[in-house]
Design a protein around this nucleic acid. Sequence first.
DNA 1: GGAAGTTACCCACAACTACCCACAATCTTA
DNA 2: TAAGATTGTGGGTAGTTGTGGGTAACTTCC
Lengths: 154, 154
Amino acid sequence: MTLTNNTFIGEYAYSLDSKGRVNVPAKYRQSLSDDNDSTFVITRGMDSCIWVYPLTHWKEIESNLRNLSSISRINRTFVRNTVRYAFPTQYDKQGRITLTPSLIEYAGLTKDALIIGMVNKIAIWDPATLKLIDQQNMEIDIEAYDDLAEKIIL
Amino acid sequence: MTLTNNTFIGEYAYSLDSKGRVNVPAKYRQSLSDDNDSTFVITRGMDSCIWVYPLTHWKEIESNLRNLSSISRINRTFVRNTVRYAFPTQYDKQGRITLTPSLIEYAGLTKDALIIGMVNKIAIWDPATLKLIDQQNMEIDIEAYDDLAEKIIL
DNA sequence: GGAAGTTACCCACAACTACCCACAATCTTA
DNA sequence: TAAGATTGTGGGTAGTTGTGGGTAACTTCC
């Protein structure tokens, strides 16, 4: 029994195998609701990581995209960029998903893959890349950060 | 069993053969619902690409066109331009569709063809042309783009 | 009507992918 | 603590996918 459907938290360190497969944390598999049919949609995320959506969440995005007319240039561009690198995968009997060479290169993955729950989606990072991004984020707007914290953490 | 009917996402790099045929990604063939009868309607798209509609989607466009009175000059012109370059094709046993010389020229295709899912239709690009368009789009209205992103991606 | 060109259908094959089984390490439970 | 179940990782194999080209039917033009 799962408490929260389609909710992903926590960090997991796995390895990328020679076939480009990464494990999906068992906890995530359990919290994935049945109407996802063991399927995730994988795509490029921001800051060179990979985003992994549960199918139901992706479908919401998709239905929003469906309503954008292709006559507007900005819409066309947005749809194309959003969808371009995305594709659905079912995890195999061992609970792994296969990444494409293109995504592996984008995220700079080599041997290790860090999987981080982002509540409604999952992020896959190369550990070194994430470290770098975190260092850059030291220069982030501290006040804005604290404002957020006060609102949300209580 | 298909998860998502008539939904096309992802990017695929194929080659145009000497007979003007391009492969339709296997994933797209699977997600094409049966009432399309393996048929796509191919036509000119915006920005020198080729648009490929599943038959059912094209029929919606057609029925909208049907309701436009030919008395208005603007309607006549619009109908003509929309329908002019469109024609239906079934994909062959190997899953390929044949493009006309006219469309190949319009899209500037030579050897490589980039196929990009646009959710409710498919676009075929010459890789170099798309690169150029993408560069031009760097000058797009960033704020409007980000607004879209915040609304849709979450 | 017949030649030349075009199109539709078929077969072939290399590369790749999805599916399966195996096993060691870890966690659970009695 | 011991037995059993679960989890993470590796690799083999059969089926699928992408690509090329051959042949017969059909169209077009003289």
